[in-house]
Every structure is written in C-alpha cells, then in structure tokens.
Lab assay of single mutants.
Amino acid sequence: MDALKSAGRALIRSPSLAKQSWGGGGRHRKLPENWTDTRETLLEGMLFSLKYLGMTLVEQPKGEELSAAAIKRIVATAKASGKKLQKVTLKVSPRGIILTDNLTNQLIENVSIYRISYCTADKMHDKVFAYIAQSQHNQSLECHAFLCTKRKMAQAVTLTVAQAFKVAFEFWQVSKEEKEKRDKASQEGGDVLGARQDCTPPLKSLVATGNLLDLEETAKAPLSTVSANTTNMDEVPRPQALSGSSVVWELDDGLDEAFSRLAQSRTNPQVLDTGLTAQDMHYAQCLSPVDWDKPDSSGTEQDDLFSF
C-alpha cells in the first residue's frame, strides 16, 4: 500500500511530472533526481522514447528462454528487412502500455495491464526491452520488442512496467475491499429498513384510530445511509488515497477476473515476472533518469539497429 499512497501523494503535489519523457535525446524537461521519484509518476504514465523492432507469436506467457528466442527472431526479421526502425513513445501506467508513433502521434497499440504476463531486458541484446501480452483480438500470446538507447534504459522500462503492474494490483485490492464494505453496509441498511417496515402498523389501523404518522421519526431512520450505499452501487469504487486528485481509476471486468485468478494461483500475485536478476534490479533502481541518457562506457552510441 505504500507504493499506492506515495504515488497518489506525488501526483497530487505535481501532476505535471508524469508528462516528462525519457530517452528522447535531450528533449525532456528537468528530471527527478532518483528512481523513487520517477516511480511516483506512474499514475498518469511515464513516457519512454524507443524504437519498435516488431512482434512475434509465442506459445507460453512467460520465460527467459522463451523471450530470448522470440527477441532473436524479431531482431533477425528487422535486420533482414533493412528498413529504419519506427520511433515510438511507450506510455507506461497502472492501466497498461500505450504505444504511439512519434511522427504521426497515431495510436499503435493499447495493452491493458492485466494482459501483460512478462517483461524483460534481454541478456543477449542488452539494449532490447520486450514484453509478452495476450492479444486483445484473440487468445494468442505476442512478444513485442523495442530497441532502447542503452542497457540502462531497457532495464528502466522493464522495472517501470513491473512497478505499474504492482500498483494496478494494489488498486484492485483496495477497490475489492471498498466494494465488500459497501455491499455489507448496503445489506445491513436493508435489514434495518426491513425491520422498521415489519414493526410499522398498517396504514388502515392508523387511520381508524385517528393517529398521525410521525414524519420526524421517519426522517431519523437510516434511510439516507441505505440510499447512499445503493444509489451508486454500479459505480466502481476508487482508492481513497486518490481522493481529490485528477486521476480516475476504473476497474473493468477483465482486470477484476484476471487479478482474482492471480490472487488464487500465485504466492506473490502482485509481482510481474521479469528477466532481471536481483543485481540488475538493484543497479537500475539506483540510477537517476539522467543516467539513462548518458552514453555507455563501451563506446559511442549508434542510432541504428545494427549497432548491437
């Protein structure tokens, strides 16, 4: 819950932080000083300027060897085509990944977070970031790969997607708890209302004896509580940590079903599988986004697919 609360507080303090972009060759504004600060901008989305290598189908939802083989196929196909790589912007948030063309600003792909089953910074092609997700059109699994400016960037994108998945799962947990509370309150309110109706004398007997209905007592009954809980029953509950912020979080049926399955089948359902080692994760978390744009010590960066 700490990640969720800190993310909400950060967004309320400075929503404009989320509009910064990394990996864009110096076009961005001043960047936060450390990885923790940038992680807090996830709610509205972190932007990464990358190059799209392509996509291939895979048979399993996750796995280092599986993704490595898929990336190898994608890279080989991209090299064989001889075409310049498409420059894209990857927007990562707890909602998922939005992929747009840098030149036309046209939407290429919009992947809900619950469809993503794996992401990684490839070991062999260490400047490549990739994720595996279920197609929104059918049940097939797709591996999408992107060329980053350097290994640090690939690791940073991988960690960002993993963190977005974690925050999304926490949102789901909060929403589920809130819905259970509202359902319980609604049920209790309905029981109270039913009890009051059972003990209320029939209207005919009131008229016969000349008694008047006590409207004041009726007004004191917990009807307002019942209506408050039943009027918006169809509205999706939102985490309290975000009250007053500009973010509107809505959970669709697909996300609810997917996270429910994860909660039942996995020990740590909030953790998205990645190909990063503990050492890689520690190294990337210690980086400032400013470091992502620094040239690798191995030599001059080449803006070309064939540089790796």
Results as ranks from 00 to 15, higher is better:
residue 3 A to L: 10
residue 3 A to M: 12
residue 5 K to R: 12
residue 6 S to C: 08
residue 7 A to D: 15
residue 7 A to M: 08
residue 10 A to T: 15
residue 11 L to C: 11
residue 11 L to G: 15
residue 14 S to W: 01
residue 14 S to L: 00
residue 14 S to D: 13
residue 21 S to L: 05
residue 22 W to S: 08
residue 22 W to V: 02
residue 23 G to Q: 03
residue 25 G to N: 09
residue 28 H to K: 15
residue 28 H to S: 15
residue 28 H to Y: 12
residue 29 R to M: 09
residue 31 L to S: 12
residue 33 E to T: 14
residue 33 E to I: 14
residue 36 T to P: 10
residue 38 T to V: 12
residue 38 T to K: 12
residue 40 E to S: 10
residue 44 E to S: 10
residue 48 F to V: 03
residue 50 L to Y: 01
residue 51 K to R: 12
residue 52 Y to D: 02
residue 53 L to N: 01
residue 54 G to S: 00
residue 55 M to D: 08
residue 56 T to L: 12
residue 56 T to I: 09
residue 57 L to Q: 13
residue 57 L to W: 10
residue 58 V to N: 01
residue 58 V to Y: 03
residue 63 G to C: 11
residue 66 L to H: 04
residue 67 S to Q: 06
residue 67 S to G: 13
residue 67 S to V: 12
residue 68 A to L: 15
residue 69 A to I: 01
residue 71 I to F: 00
residue 71 I to C: 04
residue 74 I to W: 01
residue 74 I to L: 03
residue 78 A to W: 04
residue 78 A to M: 02
residue 79 K to P: 00
residue 80 A to R: 12
residue 81 S to E: 11
residue 81 S to A: 04
residue 82 G to C: 04
residue 83 K to W: 02
residue 83 K to C: 09
residue 86 Q to Y: 13
residue 88 V to A: 05
residue 88 V to E: 00
residue 88 V to G: 03
residue 89 T to H: 12
residue 89 T to D: 09
residue 90 L to Y: 00
residue 91 K to S: 06
residue 91 K to Y: 06
residue 93 S to G: 08
residue 94 P to N: 02
residue 95 R to P: 06
residue 95 R to L: 05
residue 96 G to D: 15
residue 96 G to Y: 03
residue 100 T to P: 00
residue 100 T to Y: 05
residue 100 T to G: 14
residue 101 D to A: 12
residue 105 N to D: 08
residue 106 Q to F: 13
residue 108 I to S: 02
residue 111 V to E: 01
residue 112 S to V: 02
residue 114 Y to L: 02
residue 116 I to S: 00
residue 119 C to H: 01
residue 119 C to G: 15
residue 120 T to F: 03
residue 121 A to Y: 01
residue 122 D to Q: 00
residue 122 D to H: 01
residue 124 M to K: 06
residue 126 D to H: 00
residue 127 K to F: 00
residue 128 V to E: 00
residue 129 F to L: 01
residue 131 Y to T: 00
residue 138 N to C: 11
residue 139 Q to I: 08
residue 139 Q to M: 12
residue 141 L to R: 13
residue 142 E to M: 09
residue 143 C to R: 00
residue 147 L to F: 00
residue 148 C to Y: 00
residue 149 T to D: 05
residue 150 K to L: 11
residue 153 M to D: 10
residue 155 Q to I: 13
residue 157 V to F: 03
residue 159 L to W: 09
residue 159 L to I: 13
residue 160 T to M: 15
residue 162 A to W: 03
residue 163 Q to L: 11
residue 166 K to A: 15
residue 167 V to D: 13
residue 167 V to S: 10
residue 168 A to S: 09
residue 169 F to T: 02
residue 169 F to D: 03
residue 171 F to Q: 06
residue 178 E to D: 11
residue 181 K to G: 13
residue 182 R to L: 13
residue 186 S to I: 03
residue 188 E to F: 03
residue 189 G to R: 05
residue 190 G to P: 12
residue 190 G to C: 01
residue 190 G to Q: 11
residue 194 G to T: 11
residue 197 Q to K: 08
residue 198 D to R: 06
residue 200 T to R: 12
residue 200 T to H: 09
residue 201 P to M: 11
residue 202 P to R: 15
residue 203 L to F: 07
residue 204 K to N: 07
residue 205 S to W: 03
residue 209 T to A: 14
residue 210 G to T: 09
residue 213 L to Y: 03
residue 215 L to N: 15
residue 220 K to C: 04
residue 221 A to G: 08
residue 221 A to K: 05
residue 221 A to V: 07
residue 221 A to I: 07
residue 222 P to F: 06
residue 224 S to W: 04
residue 225 T to S: 07
residue 226 V to C: 10
residue 227 S to Q: 10
residue 227 S to G: 13
residue 228 A to P: 06
residue 228 A to F: 08
residue 230 T to N: 07
residue 232 N to W: 05
residue 234 D to E: 10
residue 234 D to F: 04
residue 236 V to E: 07
residue 236 V to C: 11
residue 237 P to R: 15
residue 238 R to C: 08
residue 241 A to E: 04
residue 247 V to E: 15
residue 250 E to Y: 04
residue 250 E to K: 10
residue 250 E to Q: 13
residue 251 L to H: 10
residue 255 L to P: 03
residue 255 L to F: 04
residue 258 A to K: 06
residue 258 A to P: 04
residue 259 F to L: 04
residue 262 L to E: 04
residue 263 A to V: 10
residue 263 A to H: 03
residue 263 A to T: 10
residue 265 S to M: 12
residue 269 P to I: 04
residue 269 P to L: 03
residue 270 Q to N: 06
residue 270 Q to H: 15
residue 270 Q to R: 03
residue 271 V to N: 12
residue 273 D to A: 11
residue 277 T to M: 03
residue 277 T to V: 10
residue 282 H to W: 07
residue 284 A to H: 13
residue 286 C to N: 10
residue 289 P to W: 07
residue 289 P to H: 04
residue 294 K to D: 07
residue 297 S to H: 06
residue 299 G to R: 03
residue 300 T to M: 12
residue 301 E to C: 07
residue 301 E to Y: 12
residue 304 D to G: 13
residue 306 F to R: 01
residue 307 S to A: 08
